[in-house]
Nucleic acid binder design. Sequence first.
DNA 1: CGGCACGCAATGCAGCCGCAATGTCTGTCG
DNA 2: CGACAGACATTGCGGCTGCATTGCGTGCCG
Lengths: 222, 222
Amino acid sequence: MRILLVEDEIDMATALTAALSRHDVVVDHARTLEIAEEACRSGVHDAVLLDRKLPDGDGLSLIPFLRRERAGLPIIVLSALGSPEHRVAGLDNGADDYLAKPFSTDELLARLRAVMRRPAQIGQNTVNVGHLRFNLTERQAEVEGEPLDLPRRELLALEILVRRAGRTVSRTALEEAVYGYDDEIASNSLDAHISRLRRKLSGSGVEIHAIRGLGYLLRAAA
Amino acid sequence: MRILLVEDEIDMATALTAALSRHDVVVDHARTLEIAEEACRSGVHDAVLLDRKLPDGDGLSLIPFLRRERAGLPIIVLSALGSPEHRVAGLDNGADDYLAKPFSTDELLARLRAVMRRPAQIGQNTVNVGHLRFNLTERQAEVEGEPLDLPRRELLALEILVRRAGRTVSRTALEEAVYGYDDEIASNSLDAHISRLRRKLSGSGVEIHAIRGLGYLLRAAA
DNA sequence: CGGCACGCAATGCAGCCGCAATGTCTGTCG
DNA sequence: CGACAGACATTGCGGCTGCATTGCGTGCCG
């Protein structure tokens, strides 16, 4: 686990870093909003711990940026401003949790864990099923790190199946995704693509089931 | 928004219900773990507020059940036990947030909002009966997490039975749902589907009763 | 021109489902 | 109380539909 700590007081930062390190959390430290923005761009962090009183503004003002950059990134506000009004402000500005200083390190860690265990890969653009990983933005599939080159139609079919992994996808929905609206296909060529996909996915821990009369369904192999 | 409040102190419960109602939150109140379990099965709630000291045990013991029943359902623990150790215990038992009494209603509401805006609870339009879970939007049945693949007609029959779980469904209503309006069936094939369904549902804690002359009824096994 | 993608058709196959035969139960009536 | 009738349960069979797979031919691209 690697987190970004946005905090200007050095003592606080070093103490927190030490405490978190003892629990195998890697901490990157940013002293200002500006540095934090920069650090966040790397996209390597699993969560953000955010102080409010910073040299260049209120920590809360960073949240919209974080949400735009990395929707779903857990954000916990750490602040000496601990009144209910402050807490509400923090949460309603988009933070996932708000912890008033002083706090116990154990509680911080527990809240980190709580916030991290929510359904991770939503808002994130890669989906894992079995040993298959599918990057939705780059439209790239890989099996156990090995990139899997697929022809266009098969890729499109796999994409929609993966997007709705574990749920049945109707045949028409698949056809729409694979062929688009323009050219309608009057044969079983979709079945052919599925067939080839299956072969290429054998051994990836992923199965494509046919639900007779309803469509197809992709899921992790039993 | 509709939430389940698990709390045994009547004063606390009524005060909370009143406060939440003013913000358009519908509150269902359960006084014990047992009642809470039952209420949760309906699957209508968007979040759970959980007290710890309950007549029949620690509220935390309900969390595994909730997670099994409705993964991703937001859970906020409300407790007079407010030490860091207690908080850590609550969070590490699977709660999404932990709020020590006394707390401000505004903060509770803010935390509710925070916890609810997390990856839009995947359209969980799902009904639980016994160990059977039926996802109405995806038309997918599963028993204790294990997906249950059903052929079309059986699935349609199960769907309408589940939608009206605990109430009898007339034979004609079933036929309409299963066969549609077009082709009328002149035999007992519906009975056959029910029969096969029953076999596949054996051990799922669900029974399909025949109400002689009236129709069928699905409910949790005794 | 060689390779790849893909539409298409042919063939094979599995399983769903309608159907009917037979069994079981319940309520009613003589 | 016994017998019958009607309703539901269960099971096997078979046809037919819909999916799987493969091979071929065409067109696109390098």
